[in-house]
Nucleic acid binder design. Structure first.
Lengths: 204, 204
DNA sequence: GTGAGAACAGACAGGTCTGTAGCACTGGAG
DNA sequence: CTCCAGTGCTACAGACCTGTCTGTTCTCAC
């Protein structure tokens, strides 16, 4: 279908869809997905409920779209940072832990959206859960790619440890002192990498 | 019916209260708190709704009681293990990572209840949130007590790192291979402790 | 036996939720 | 100018939710 023009507030512009998704994302993240009804979303977005259901057939689909959006934002930030350290995996990792630690320490930080939504929807076949699971596996995959450039004995284990560390940071914001997260994560990563290099990994 | 020898406690027996709390705990953990209505709880527990509201004034109170129960179970297990290693902090930590890793790998593991509920109820004044926050801080407090027996330069930082690790394990069960969690956690703890002992911690 | 407390059973009130339907408006394409 | 897809607005259906109320039964204590 056309929908190509998409130019400013024209006709079939995607303006309305974007506004719905952005509004829903903010509300979902801040208040929790189940706590936010579609009526609230359409009210805050200033659109008609009909429009919401035309662009997203179901609330569940809207939730999945929310997570996909967050996923894209997250990896967008990741890629932007990664691009600066193409030749230095160690520096790249530190940089990631830097912005992640900073993000975790923000005043209104409410945890990782993927994890939060997975906690709210245990049903394995929920569309949003698939996005969340893909997100977590992608995290480990990317960390493994970094670990493989770090000259450690078992890159996959280091990747697993770093994944746990990062996921842990996402859910531990409550226990951090201000500004504590990033150095804590960096020191931990340093320790894990050092241990992975020294070859005392012969035992089980 | 029988009500099996409702016996001694006879009248004000806590039998009903326990049954409600246990049933609710299972359902809440498995399906999520918001997804489970009180009607389902009373039905599965085989009690009258009046009884639920007599013992727990509110669903929110029932949720808080659920988390308190989980909290007690968790620290009960912790204490049982800790008692075996009173004189060996290193072995105690390994033992904790052992049962935590095992628990995380169970087939129906659905994450830490405290974290899940906190994700479902962002409102800071929700009674269940207070239980959850207390739980997380208690975790760091206990890990700090262990770290202080481990001859590391900055026990508080190690405690923070171990807390992140444990919380991370709770939310990362999806990315673990079967049986992977415990050794991964133990190797990580080993690395963190080693790094905390070597005195290259003079920098910031 | 009698009264009190606890539990059961079921209906109900009042609200919220998702999702749908009907009708009017608008602005660009032909 | 005339279509017409996209949008807004309102009302509604049907389900579900929390919490309350009434009425009945059971068991213990006295």
């Amino acid at each position: 279908m056309s929908k190509i023009s998409s130019n400013p507030v024209g006709h079939g512009s995607t303006d309305v869809r974007d506004r719905i998704l952005e509004t829903a994302s903010k509300l979902f993240y801040k208040q929790g997905v189940r706590a936010v009804g579609v009526d609230l979303v359409v009210d805050k977005a200033g659109v008609a409920k009909t429009s919401l259901y035309r662009h997203f057939g179901t609330k569940d689909d809207l939730i999945a779209a929310f997570l996909e959006r967050e996923d894209q934002d997250f990896w967008g930030q990741w890629d932007r940072v990664a691009a600066k350290y193409e030749h230095d995996a160690r520096a790249e990792l530190d940089a990631h832990l830097g912005w992640i630690g900073e993000r975790v320490g923000r005043p209104n930080y409410r945890g990782c959206p993927q994890i939060n939504v997975a906690a709210e929807f245990p049903e394995a076949d929920h569309p949003a859960r698939k996005v969340a699971e893909t997100h977590k596996r992608e995290m480990r995959r990317r960390l493994k790619a970094i670990a493989e450039r770090l000259d450690v004995a078992v890159p996959d284990e280091l990747a697993g440890q770093l994944s746990v560390l990062v996921n842990g940071a996402f859910v531990s914001s409550q226990i951090f002192e201000p500004g504590e997260a990033t150095p804590l994560l960096r020191h931990a990563a340093e320790a894990l990498i050092s241990a992975g290099r020294s070859s005392n990994r012969i035992d089980l």
